[in-house]
Design a protein around this nucleic acid. Structure first.
Lengths: 125, 125
DNA sequence: AACAGTGTACTAGTACGCTATTACATTATA
DNA sequence: TATAATGTAATAGCGTACTAGTACACTGTT
């Protein structure tokens, strides 16, 4: 896994787990890989994994069962809003930044459309 | 100025200066406030300002004149591409993140449109 | 009961970003 | 020429992120 060196690794791991849940690679009640295994997979230290997981546990996204493992919560009210919340955070970020650069909402839409079109031309995907 | 504590302050200051140039609060050849003044304005240490400025100087966006001050470059080729480059970086970021979340390009557009509509409803601006 | 697999906690050490402070170099000005 | 204003450099100290290593607590299995 590639990490952005401007943002704490534990924070990026949180985003990664959000993603895994949102795209249903992890489902409610699923057991996560063991912390030592995650550390190997992501080539970071166990403590860094633990830092990320403990925050997710505090948020109620994960549940920890000592001796058993970490599990995706089965609390529907939390999971239902997760996708919407994560996506909205991204949109808010790009909106705020482009607004700083004095783009109008209409210009933001066309800028994104043009960017997507350009990617297709460049065989960017 | 408010800083995101997940990203280095010097890096956010770079973004701030990019913005000031792009929206023409700073024009080619303009003198920046003195480093000590900037430090006061942004309530950070002079060294942190210096860290940001030295990278902008390396990039050719600013020019340093010892004893005189720091100035926006008059090199048109650099400034011409600055706006496009900064905006594209933002679009790339949101595109990549939403693609991770398995949104199609079409869904990204409508998601942004809906977000903008929602902001208007909420009197968000 | 013993063992393996799990999460959790703690310590020590390294690196980096930031602050505070001091000093120095260059330029313009009084 | 002296002084003020500028950028530049260097040091020391602090907090946090990360790593490495060790130990402990709980659970399930043999």
């Amino acid at each position: 896994m590639e990490f952005n060196d401007k943002i704490p690794i534990y924070y990026q791991i949180k985003q990664y787990i959000y993603t895994e849940i949102i795209i249903s690679h992890l489902s409610p009640g699923d057991k996560l890989p063991a912390v030592r295994q995650l550390a190997l997979d992501l080539t970071v230290n166990v403590n860094t994994i633990q830092r990320a997981l403990s925050e997710l546990i505090d948020e109620g996204v994960l549940e920890s069962k000592r001796g058993k493992g970490n599990f995706v919560t089965e609390d529907e009210t939390i999971l239902m809003k997760l996708r919407e919340k994560v996506i909205e955070t991204q949109l808010q970020h790009v909106y705020d930044r482009l607004a700083e650069l004095q783009l109008s909402p209409e210009e933001m839409i066309t800028a994104l459309q043009n960017y997507i079109a350009k990617r297709k031309d460049d065989n960017h995907d």
